[in-house]
Design a protein around this nucleic acid. Structure first.
Lengths: 211, 211
DNA sequence: ACAGAAACATACATGCGGTACGTATGTCAA
DNA sequence: TTGACATACGTACCGCATGTATGTTTCTGT
């Protein structure tokens, strides 16, 4: 029974990931020396390279943690809702809520694709946020709400729109206004996918922009 | 009249940007030492830091050159076309064509936001591709083709979708198939913005997906 | 022709990432 | 319990890359 050593490792990893997350979010991956992370975590470089192989490995762990959190936040927001359009509205809002945290924007949206490479980023994303969107779209097609089409492709493109919306909001001077406008724009865009957008608009009063 | 010196500088800058462009495209900004760029360009670090201040400055120059090329390519493809929906279709196709070149994908779409920071990236983008999209959408609103709404926000989100589509194509095994599917998805998404999508679909036979 | 500036080249300082190696502690089997 | 081994680090060092400071040469205006 190896219990104490396991806990020790976990504690070290948690400290490394936690402080790395904060520092990467504040100044970006490239601008934070590994020395600073390990110093903040109260360990040395040895611990980092033992657990994560290299600096990029640590970043990946941080990214995956953030991905899990965001996806869970979105999943919680849509659970129990039957109406697909409402699910989409709530999911969108929850995602933009999650992206209010600067760490999510800087680490998850800005740095991750460049640091890990787009391919790797996409693979990880497919198991979290992208996977959620794919599931949603497939369900929508099955219910006949949107027209049949290659789901993974559409999902990726929609994710791109979502990410850009979140980045736009994060960089805006007036976050409130930007959030309202961006959320509305995404709603407009996605509502165009519905086979009978007008009907949906009636079902969800105020939910779908009609102006 | 300073003519010879001007030409000399221009030649040096062209060599630096040219080789940097190739190397950055092949292995990414972070993985290419400045030494390698200046060696390929047949100069020394002195020339680089004289003209561009730092390595990031050189990258910025490369990025702006690529942006100009892509935007010009798209602009050429849509000039002379009156029908707005056709303009969008052609612009989309031209953009995806431009993104077939790996340098555009790696430098312009993957590295640039992380290297320059999203804010700076966005400012540069606003004077090129994003600016083009904004102009298009404003014209569309003026003509009553799409509903009035905050254009810069919508443009940015659409750009995000376009970029993700291009990245998806670039990373796909079967580029042909991915290109067809992605282009179609973006068409579907954007066509949802039109106030009377059905009418547009009739005007442009085969152009707008109706399945 | 000469003063100054621009366009580089060279040398150096600094800092960061990765690796090799040492060490202490935990783990399991006999 | 004890010896063999694995795990989890700490330490020291190397190579490399960036940026800067300082020369040196080539132009350019007067």
């Amino acid at each position: 029974m190896r219990r104490r050593q396991e806990e020790r490792s976990q504690a070290t990893r948690a400290a490394l990931v936690g402080h790395a997350r904060r520092l990467f979010a504040e100044r970006g991956y490239a601008a934070v020396p590994a020395d600073e992370v390990v110093a903040a975590a109260g360990v040395t470089r040895g611990a980092l390279y033992h657990h994560y192989g290299d600096k990029q490995g640590l970043f990946r762990a941080v990214f995956e943690e953030i991905e899990r959190e965001v996806t869970e936040q979105v999943a919680e927001a849509i659970v129990g809702e039957d109406d697909l359009w409402q699910v989409m509205l709530r999911g969108l809002a929850a995602f933009l809520d999650a992206c209010e945290r600067p760490e999510v924007v800087r680490i998850g949206l800005t740095d991750a694709p460049a640091v890990l490479g787009w391919q790797t980023w996409r693979e990880i994303e497919a198991e979290h946020g992208l996977g959620l969107i794919i599931a949603l779209l497939e369900r929508a097609i099955n219910e006949g709400v949107i027209a049949p089409q290659p789901v993974p492709v559409l999902a990726q493109i929609v994710l791109g729109a979502l990410i850009e919306a979140a980045l736009l909001i994060a960089a805006a001077e007036d976050r409130q206004a930007a959030r309202a406008a961006a959320e509305r724009s995404v709603q407009t865009l996605v509502s165009g996918l519905l086979v009978d957008s007008a009907a949906r608009g009636a079902e969800a009063p105020g939910g779908r922009p009609t102006q």
